[in-house]
Amino acid sequence: MTEHVSLTVNGIGREVDVEPRRLLVQLLREELDLTGTHVGCDTSQCGACTVTMDGRAVKSCTVLAVQADGANVTTIEGVAKAGAMHPLQSAFWEKHGLQCGFCTPGMIMAAMDLLDRVSDPSDEEIRHAIEGNICRCTGYHNIVLAIREAARTLRTGETASAGGVS
């Protein structure tokens, strides 16, 4: 027994037949091979599976695939445009906002939602916005710096002075 779902993922229209119990994260990872969206827990606590759905961050483990019918979903794979990294991606790189990288896609998607709504967030607002995303590596310090930096870039259009190149 399957149901038909039409949705847009990273700007591309997709038509998929899914089991009703299938979660959006499973649809993305298993049917569409978008494995940048990760599964870190089974209780909607960790946020590794965060994507945006119609512009708002959602944990894709809490959304049934059928609920995404008609929705516009963006995953980490759809964030860079025309080969250019999004300022959030550049800032996470620049500020060492990741170590093992497992939480990073979800963290960036959650931050994307924040910066969409708030152009100049305080550290407190940043920390609140990523409250539902667990990072076990960084202690959040450099993630906060990265989001702060991305907000500045998006506001001013200037990128940070280049650090080292590797």
Binding site: L34, T35, G36, T37, H38, T75, I76, E77, V79, A80, M85, Q89, F92, W93, E94, H96, L98, G101, F102, T104, P105, I108, G163, G164, V165, S166
Partner: peptide, 17 residues
């Protein structure tokens, strides 16, 4: 403090766990 060469794959969803 060179930027990490691992990061581009992780921040674009191209990691391979």
């Amino acid at each position: 403090s060179l930027k990490r060469r691992e990061d581009p794959r992780f921040i674009t969803g191209e990691g391979n766990y």
